[in-house]
Protein backbone atom coordinates (compact mmCIF):
# COMPACT_ATOMS: atom_id res chain seq x y z
CA UNK A 1 0.00 0.00 0.00
CA UNK A 2 1.37 3.37 -0.84
CA UNK A 3 0.40 6.88 -0.05
CA UNK A 4 -0.86 7.61 -3.54
CA UNK A 5 -3.74 5.24 -3.20
CA UNK A 6 -5.26 6.99 -0.32
CA UNK A 7 -4.54 10.49 -1.29
CA UNK A 8 -6.38 9.92 -4.55
CA UNK A 9 -9.13 7.62 -3.43
CA UNK A 10 -9.94 9.05 -0.06
CA UNK A 11 -10.77 12.66 0.42
CA UNK A 12 -8.31 14.98 -1.09
CA UNK A 13 -7.25 17.21 1.78
CA UNK A 14 -6.69 20.06 -0.65
CA UNK A 15 -10.21 19.97 -1.97
CA UNK A 16 -11.60 21.91 0.95
CA UNK A 17 -8.67 24.09 1.74
CA UNK A 18 -8.70 25.68 -1.69
CA UNK A 19 -8.95 29.23 -0.64
CA UNK A 20 -7.35 32.50 -1.36
CA UNK A 21 -3.96 31.44 -0.05
CA UNK A 22 -3.65 28.74 -2.76
CA UNK A 23 -0.91 29.39 -5.23
CA UNK A 24 2.21 31.07 -4.00
CA UNK A 25 2.52 28.93 -0.92
CA UNK A 26 2.54 25.71 -2.86
CA UNK A 27 5.41 26.58 -5.17
CA UNK A 28 7.68 27.59 -2.33
CA UNK A 29 7.07 24.40 -0.41
CA UNK A 30 7.74 22.19 -3.45
CA UNK A 31 11.01 24.03 -4.00
CA UNK A 32 12.09 23.25 -0.48
CA UNK A 33 11.00 19.64 -0.67
CA UNK A 34 13.00 18.69 -3.78
CA UNK A 35 14.65 15.37 -3.03
CA UNK A 36 18.37 15.33 -2.51
CA UNK A 37 18.98 12.97 -5.44
CA UNK A 38 17.28 15.36 -7.82
CA UNK A 39 19.39 18.30 -6.65
CA UNK A 40 22.54 16.22 -7.05
CA UNK A 41 21.46 15.17 -10.54
CA UNK A 42 20.84 18.76 -11.54
CA UNK A 43 24.30 19.68 -10.23
CA UNK A 44 25.97 16.90 -12.24
CA UNK A 45 24.20 17.99 -15.41
CA UNK A 46 25.06 21.65 -14.82
CA UNK A 47 28.75 20.89 -14.24
CA UNK A 48 29.00 18.73 -17.34
CA UNK A 49 27.16 21.32 -19.41
CA UNK A 50 29.66 23.90 -18.18
CA UNK A 51 32.48 21.59 -19.30
CA UNK A 52 30.88 21.34 -22.71
CA UNK A 53 30.32 25.06 -23.17
CA UNK A 54 33.48 26.48 -21.60
CA UNK A 55 36.07 23.71 -21.44
CA UNK A 56 38.94 26.18 -21.13
CA UNK A 57 37.78 27.16 -17.64
CA UNK A 58 38.19 23.61 -16.38
CA UNK A 59 41.02 21.87 -18.23
CA UNK A 60 44.22 21.68 -16.26
CA UNK A 61 46.47 20.56 -19.10
CA UNK A 62 46.37 20.58 -22.86
CA UNK A 63 44.10 17.63 -23.59
CA UNK A 64 45.84 16.84 -26.87
CA UNK A 65 49.45 17.20 -25.75
CA UNK A 66 51.07 14.37 -23.84
CA UNK A 67 54.12 14.22 -21.63
CA UNK A 68 55.82 10.85 -22.30
CA UNK A 69 57.51 10.96 -18.87
CA UNK A 70 54.26 10.54 -17.03
CA UNK A 71 52.62 7.91 -19.28
CA UNK A 72 49.98 5.75 -17.65
CA UNK A 73 50.18 7.31 -14.21
CA UNK A 74 47.26 6.52 -11.92
CA UNK A 75 45.04 9.26 -10.51
CA UNK A 76 46.96 11.67 -8.27
CA UNK A 77 46.83 15.22 -7.00
CA UNK A 78 47.99 16.68 -10.32
CA UNK A 79 46.11 14.36 -12.62
CA UNK A 80 42.82 13.65 -10.89
CA UNK A 81 41.82 11.05 -13.45
CA UNK A 82 45.36 9.86 -14.20
CA UNK A 83 47.12 10.00 -17.56
CA UNK A 84 46.87 7.89 -20.69
CA UNK A 85 49.35 5.94 -22.79
CA UNK A 86 50.71 9.17 -24.32
CA UNK A 87 50.90 10.95 -20.98
CA UNK A 88 47.87 13.14 -21.64
CA UNK A 89 45.81 14.29 -18.68
CA UNK A 90 42.59 12.25 -18.69
CA UNK A 91 40.60 14.78 -16.67
CA UNK A 92 41.30 17.42 -19.30
CA UNK A 93 40.42 14.99 -22.05
CA UNK A 94 37.13 14.16 -20.36
CA UNK A 95 36.33 17.86 -19.97
CA UNK A 96 37.28 18.51 -23.57
CA UNK A 97 35.26 15.48 -24.69
CA UNK A 98 32.08 16.77 -23.04
CA UNK A 99 31.62 19.22 -25.89
CA UNK A 100 31.91 16.52 -28.56
CA UNK A 101 29.76 13.99 -26.70
CA UNK A 102 27.01 16.31 -25.53
CA UNK A 103 27.05 18.40 -28.71
CA UNK A 104 26.49 15.34 -30.87
CA UNK A 105 23.83 14.13 -28.45
CA UNK A 106 22.07 17.49 -28.48
CA UNK A 107 22.00 17.54 -32.28
CA UNK A 108 20.60 14.01 -32.34
CA UNK A 109 17.85 14.74 -29.81
CA UNK A 110 16.94 18.01 -31.45
CA UNK A 111 16.59 16.37 -34.85
CA UNK A 112 14.47 13.51 -33.61
CA UNK A 113 12.41 15.83 -31.40
CA UNK A 114 11.52 18.12 -34.29
CA UNK A 115 10.87 15.33 -36.80
CA UNK A 116 9.10 13.04 -34.36
CA UNK A 117 6.73 15.57 -32.83
CA UNK A 118 5.92 16.97 -36.25
CA UNK A 119 5.07 13.49 -37.58
CA UNK A 120 3.03 12.75 -34.46
CA UNK A 121 1.11 15.99 -34.74
CA UNK A 122 0.35 15.31 -38.40
CA UNK A 123 -0.65 11.71 -37.72
CA UNK A 124 -2.90 12.75 -34.86
CA UNK A 125 -4.71 15.51 -36.71
CA UNK A 126 -4.72 14.54 -40.37
CA UNK A 127 -7.14 11.94 -41.63
CA UNK A 128 -7.13 8.25 -41.18
CA UNK A 129 -5.06 7.38 -44.25
CA UNK A 130 -2.16 9.68 -43.40
CA UNK A 131 -2.27 8.45 -39.82
CA UNK A 132 -2.16 4.81 -40.83
CA UNK A 133 0.70 5.27 -43.32
CA UNK A 134 2.81 7.30 -40.89
CA UNK A 135 2.23 4.97 -37.98
CA UNK A 136 3.03 1.87 -40.06
CA UNK A 137 6.35 3.47 -41.03
CA UNK A 138 6.98 4.12 -37.36
CA UNK A 139 6.11 0.48 -36.63
CA UNK A 140 8.67 -0.67 -39.16
CA UNK A 141 11.35 1.63 -37.75
CA UNK A 142 10.65 0.14 -34.33
CA UNK A 143 10.92 -3.39 -35.61
CA UNK A 144 14.68 -2.97 -35.90
CA UNK A 145 16.59 -2.50 -32.64
CA UNK A 146 17.75 1.08 -32.37
CA UNK A 147 21.47 0.35 -32.34
CA UNK A 148 21.22 -1.76 -35.49
CA UNK A 149 19.12 0.91 -37.15
CA UNK A 150 21.74 3.49 -36.27
CA UNK A 151 24.44 1.21 -37.63
CA UNK A 152 22.56 0.83 -40.91
CA UNK A 153 22.42 4.61 -41.20
CA UNK A 154 26.15 4.80 -40.45
CA UNK A 155 26.80 2.16 -43.11
CA UNK A 156 24.95 4.34 -45.57
CA UNK A 157 26.26 7.77 -44.56
CA UNK A 158 29.70 6.79 -43.32
CA UNK A 159 31.22 7.65 -39.95
CA UNK A 160 31.74 11.04 -38.32
CA UNK A 161 30.09 13.00 -35.50
CA UNK A 162 27.27 14.50 -37.56
CA UNK A 163 26.50 11.20 -39.23
CA UNK A 164 26.22 9.32 -35.96
CA UNK A 165 23.97 12.10 -34.66
CA UNK A 166 21.69 11.52 -37.64
CA UNK A 167 21.90 7.77 -37.07
CA UNK A 168 20.86 8.08 -33.43
CA UNK A 169 18.15 10.60 -34.31
CA UNK A 170 16.55 8.26 -36.85
CA UNK A 171 16.32 5.56 -34.20
CA UNK A 172 14.54 7.79 -31.69
CA UNK A 173 12.07 9.45 -34.05
CA UNK A 174 9.45 6.72 -33.44
CA UNK A 175 9.10 7.34 -29.72
CA UNK A 176 8.56 11.08 -30.22
CA UNK A 177 6.08 10.47 -33.01
CA UNK A 178 4.13 7.94 -30.96
CA UNK A 179 4.00 10.07 -27.85
CA UNK A 180 2.97 13.20 -29.69
CA UNK A 181 0.26 11.37 -31.60
CA UNK A 182 -0.97 9.80 -28.38
CA UNK A 183 -1.14 13.19 -26.71
CA UNK A 184 -3.09 14.68 -29.60
CA UNK A 185 -5.56 11.81 -29.58
CA UNK A 186 -5.86 11.85 -25.82
CA UNK A 187 -6.67 15.52 -25.53
CA UNK A 188 -8.65 15.59 -28.72
CA UNK A 189 -11.42 13.57 -27.10
CA UNK A 190 -11.35 15.48 -23.84
CA UNK A 191 -14.39 17.38 -22.69
CA UNK A 192 -12.71 20.75 -22.64
CA UNK A 193 -11.78 20.41 -26.28
CA UNK A 194 -15.37 19.50 -27.06
CA UNK A 195 -16.35 22.62 -25.15
CA UNK A 196 -13.84 24.67 -27.17
CA UNK A 197 -15.17 23.28 -30.45
CA UNK A 198 -18.67 24.22 -29.39
CA UNK A 199 -17.37 27.67 -28.58
CA UNK A 200 -16.43 28.15 -32.21
CA UNK A 201 -12.67 27.65 -31.79
CA UNK A 202 -11.15 26.18 -34.96
CA UNK A 203 -8.83 23.20 -35.18
CA UNK A 204 -5.46 24.99 -35.62
CA UNK A 205 -6.15 27.18 -32.62
CA UNK A 206 -7.27 24.18 -30.59
CA UNK A 207 -4.02 22.43 -31.40
CA UNK A 208 -1.98 25.47 -30.56
CA UNK A 209 -3.77 26.66 -27.46
CA UNK A 210 -5.22 23.52 -25.91
CA UNK A 211 -3.27 20.49 -27.12
CA UNK A 212 0.29 21.80 -27.29
CA UNK A 213 0.39 23.26 -23.77
CA UNK A 214 -0.61 19.85 -22.44
CA UNK A 215 1.62 17.82 -24.73
CA UNK A 216 4.72 19.87 -24.03
CA UNK A 217 5.18 18.36 -20.58
CA UNK A 218 5.25 14.68 -21.51
CA UNK A 219 7.20 15.40 -24.70
CA UNK A 220 9.73 17.38 -22.69
CA UNK A 221 10.12 14.51 -20.25
CA UNK A 222 10.61 12.12 -23.16
CA UNK A 223 13.22 14.45 -24.63
CA UNK A 224 15.12 14.17 -21.36
CA UNK A 225 14.90 10.38 -21.41
CA UNK A 226 15.98 10.29 -25.04
CA UNK A 227 18.87 12.58 -24.20
CA UNK A 228 20.14 10.01 -21.72
CA UNK A 229 19.65 7.22 -24.22
CA UNK A 230 21.38 9.25 -26.92
CA UNK A 231 24.43 9.86 -24.71
CA UNK A 232 24.72 6.08 -24.39
CA UNK A 233 24.12 5.44 -28.10
CA UNK A 234 26.59 8.08 -29.24
CA UNK A 235 29.25 6.84 -26.88
CA UNK A 236 28.62 3.26 -28.04
CA UNK A 237 29.00 4.26 -31.70
CA UNK A 238 32.15 6.20 -30.86
CA UNK A 239 33.45 3.23 -28.93
CA UNK A 240 32.93 1.13 -32.05
CA UNK A 241 34.97 3.71 -33.94
CA UNK A 242 32.31 5.48 -35.97
CA UNK A 243 32.47 8.87 -34.21
CA UNK A 244 35.14 11.53 -33.92
CA UNK A 245 38.53 10.89 -35.40
CA UNK A 246 41.60 10.82 -33.14
CA UNK A 247 43.10 12.67 -31.45
CA UNK A 248 39.89 14.54 -30.62
CA UNK A 249 38.61 13.21 -27.31
CA UNK A 250 35.06 11.88 -27.05
CA UNK A 251 33.86 9.84 -24.07
CA UNK A 252 33.14 6.58 -25.86
CA UNK A 253 36.35 6.91 -27.80
CA UNK A 254 38.33 7.54 -24.60
CA UNK A 255 37.07 4.23 -23.27
CA UNK A 256 37.99 2.39 -26.44
CA UNK A 257 41.51 3.85 -26.13
CA UNK A 258 41.66 2.54 -22.59
CA UNK A 259 40.62 -0.90 -23.75
CA UNK A 260 44.15 -1.76 -24.84
CA UNK A 261 45.51 -0.94 -21.38
CA UNK A 262 42.77 -2.71 -19.50
CA UNK A 263 45.13 -5.07 -17.71
CA UNK A 264 47.46 -2.39 -16.39
CA UNK A 265 45.66 0.96 -16.30
CA UNK A 266 42.07 0.58 -15.08
CA UNK A 267 41.54 4.33 -14.76
CA UNK A 268 41.62 4.86 -18.52
CA UNK A 269 38.37 2.93 -18.90
CA UNK A 270 36.74 3.18 -15.50
CA UNK A 271 36.76 6.94 -15.08
CA UNK A 272 35.34 8.09 -18.44
CA UNK A 273 32.72 5.35 -18.06
CA UNK A 274 31.74 6.65 -14.65
CA UNK A 275 31.30 10.10 -16.13
CA UNK A 276 29.00 8.75 -18.84
CA UNK A 277 27.02 6.70 -16.33
CA UNK A 278 26.78 9.66 -13.95
CA UNK A 279 25.43 11.93 -16.66
CA UNK A 280 22.89 9.37 -17.89
CA UNK A 281 21.69 8.48 -14.38
CA UNK A 282 21.29 12.19 -13.59
CA UNK A 283 19.44 12.97 -16.80
CA UNK A 284 17.11 10.02 -16.19
CA UNK A 285 16.48 11.16 -12.64
CA UNK A 286 15.48 14.58 -13.92
CA UNK A 287 13.30 13.02 -16.63
CA UNK A 288 11.58 10.93 -13.98
CA UNK A 289 10.90 14.03 -11.91
CA UNK A 290 9.46 15.79 -14.97
CA UNK A 291 7.20 12.83 -15.67
CA UNK A 292 5.81 12.49 -12.17
CA UNK A 293 5.39 16.24 -11.91
CA UNK A 294 3.11 16.18 -14.95
CA UNK A 295 1.14 13.05 -14.30
CA UNK A 296 -1.38 14.25 -11.68
CA UNK A 297 -2.72 17.14 -13.79
Amino acid sequence: MTATEFSTRLEDPEEESVGTQGRGRRTTTTMLRLPFGLILSALVVLVVLAWAVLPSLFVTENPLLGDPDIRLSPPNAHHWFGTDHLGRDIFSRVVQGAGASLGTTAIAVLMSFVTGTFLGLVAGTAGRVVDTVLMRIVDVLQSVPSLLLSLAVVASLGSGPVNIAVAVAVASVPSFARLMRGEVLRWRNSLFIEAATMSGIRTPEILLRHVLPHAIGPVGALAAIEFGAAVLAISALSFLGFGTQPPDPEWGFLISEGRDYLASSWWMTVIPGLVIAGVVVSVNRIAHALQTERRPS
Partner: peptide, 12 residues
Amino acid sequence: GVSLPTFWVGLL
Protein backbone atom coordinates in the same frame (compact mmCIF):
# COMPACT_ATOMS: atom_id res chain seq x y z
CA GLY B 1 21.09 -0.43 -14.76
CA VAL B 2 19.76 1.03 -17.98
CA SER B 3 22.02 4.05 -17.60
CA LEU B 4 25.31 2.21 -17.64
CA PRO B 5 27.14 2.00 -20.99
CA THR B 6 27.12 -1.70 -21.91
CA PHE B 7 30.59 -1.69 -23.44
CA TRP B 8 31.98 -0.14 -20.28
CA VAL B 9 30.34 -2.74 -18.06
CA GLY B 10 31.83 -5.45 -20.27
CA LEU B 11 35.29 -3.95 -19.94
CA LEU B 12 34.92 -3.66 -16.17
